[in-house]
Write a protein that binds this DNA or RNA. Structure first.
Lengths: 195, 195, 195, 195
DNA sequence: TATGAATGAGCGTTCATTCAT
DNA sequence: TATGAATGAACGCTCATTCAT
């Protein structure tokens, strides 16, 4: 049983480092310290292993995020807490997180992959942002705006920052802090006294 | 001569559709209507073909963008024009543009690829945004903010919108218009009367 | 397990018959009756397979030769035994032996090949000849001569005979017997009463 | 016309350096400073170019050798002159000579090559050695021995020395001088007072 | 004579997957 | 549960050769 978890962790690290095409089942098996056959025994196929690796990450992340926004006093603060929790999660899981980037529906890693199942989980993230926005509009901390589009754009902005940090070869100090500020600024109601 | 261009176009479309790993040299050759050897004759290797395909796209795009922002009256308007030109370019080149996403330094397509040369061209885009921001801060149309980080974040936001439109399986009507509005809103000086 | 040996034997025969460039991995796999992937599974690359094929041959040969010269009463007789054992080995292993010719450092088969490891084993052969010569000079059965150069020349003469027999399209009956006689004659001390 | 000679020289140097399989027609064309098509225009095929390159070399060498042995007083001296001329030729043409090794019927370079025509020219070399041996036996400077086999063995010994010098990674100072001495010693009539 | 664009068969190699043990 | 031998389709790439100009 422990070996199944070893394999999943090895997969997350390898997919994070080398992408889907750049990761071989043998690499995963070797890093996990098992025979390659066992990887198939537990995970059936490379595609499935990839999705399982991503699923486990996103489940963990959703839990962390839900806790982080639970106590926010208003929508605007909830949004700030959301962004912060998301960005912190990427840092706390720096060795595995890029797998989540790669298996997301916004990724360019491998367009042939069937992302239906995992797509639903990413949809949950968007839905959380939407509900935060709605709450903020209701309580006056966020300006009137189209929640559906804005939710996608906010998520896109977060991913933009994460991609810059994890994938691009540029060193941009203070990027994450500025990202949070900028996102909040782009939706906050100026007549509100928050933050 | 014409065949060289046929190959480049076929490459741009294939890389856009199927990604780096998902595109084979034979696919490119077939779509271009040439023997596979000719692709190597002109472009030496798959990696080089990929970079050439991206280079040609980004050169064209840079030219379009520079013209678009040339006549803007102030920094804030220039930023709006920049975003609009970028997004329009992705629509006008919908069949080839994703190649640019994939060869960018912010991509997760293939981490082993050497993006040095093309990275410099993407750096140019960031630099343009930076100069727009500086101009806007000077002329009062944009609030005081750290230009380096903000430039990256704005570019990340644009890419977020583009990824949502081109890669993700969600249909979000009006996304591009809202993206422009949101980006401008996140930096505009409210005391200014622009737009 | 048995398949690994099948592959090695098939490689030895193919490299012997067709040379390095003229042998394809598919030819080897087919003759061995396995899938081509298995050849790489066991031997990693064509170059490594070539070297392994040669190594196995030379190890076997060195053993045979060392036994053959063990009981010689003097240096001159030892040299005769050496030459005879070498030549007999080429006949007993006629279908595989040319591989040894081709992977030797004296070969013109493929100058790009890294012959370092196998070169050391060929060096052992030269060393054996040197020690035989020294012994013969000491016991008076061989004339005074520069052992280093002579060892190389004797080995070269043996190879000359072997090349004539295996590679050249000339039929020269009695070549091997005459080769042995001539080599011994070229170093024997005439004042000695041997043979 | 000069270009044809440029190509031939470039071929001789490339085949010498890289062998038959390791030399491409493009390499030859580039070194000769011509388009690849011209190589085919003059030489039809790679195999033919190889043979032409070898032929030109062997013709030149045969001429040199014939002159060298013309004035020898007896067979044994003629043999010494032959060996010396051969070895000197390899040094004077160090950059091209290995091509001759590679296209000889004693080579392991490429067993599929049709060496019929060039084989005849190498046969001439063997015949020269045979006639020298016969002359020496007649005039008493060389011991009674089977001329056919011995001619092959002497040529093999010479090639052994040349291979050691040109192909093998060993540095053996004085090898050529010792080769000549050893070859002569292996056939000279001791009752004769020569050299 | 001279060019180099164009062809396409064939190569070494990789790797997801299967399966006997 | 666990191994790793075994498969074979598919890939990037090479290069001798042809041919229109």
């Amino acid at each position: 049983m422990a070996k199944k978890e070893d394999i999943l962790l090895a997969a997350q690290e390898n997919f994070a480092r080398s992408g889907y095409a750049g990761t071989t089942m043998k690499m995963v098996a070797e890093q996990a310290g098992v025979a390659s056959g066992l990887v198939f025994h537990y995970f059936d196929s490379k595609e499935n292993l990839f999705m399982m690796a991503g699923s486990e990450l996103i489940d963990t992340m959703l839990e962390v995020i839900r806790q982080a926004i639970a106590d926010a006093p208003d929508g605007c603060e909830a949004l700030g807490a959301f962004v912060q929790a998301y960005l912190e999660f990427t840092i706390d899981n720096a060795r595995t997180f890029p797998t989540l980037l790669r298996c997301s529906p916004f990724s360019d890693d491998n367009p042939d992959l069937d992302r239906k199942k995992i797509g639903a989980k990413f949809r949950e993230i968007i839905d959380i942002i939407e509900s935060i926005l709605r709450r903020g509009i209701l309580d006056g901390s966020i300006v009137e705006l189209p929640v559906a589009q804005t939710a996608f754009l906010i998520y896109g902005s977060i991913l933009g920052a994460v991609r810059t940090k994890f994938l691009a070869p540029y060193d941009v100090p203070g990027l994450y802090g500025e990202a949070r500020r900028m996102i909040v600024r782009s939706v906050r109601n100026p007549e509100c006294d928050a933050r």
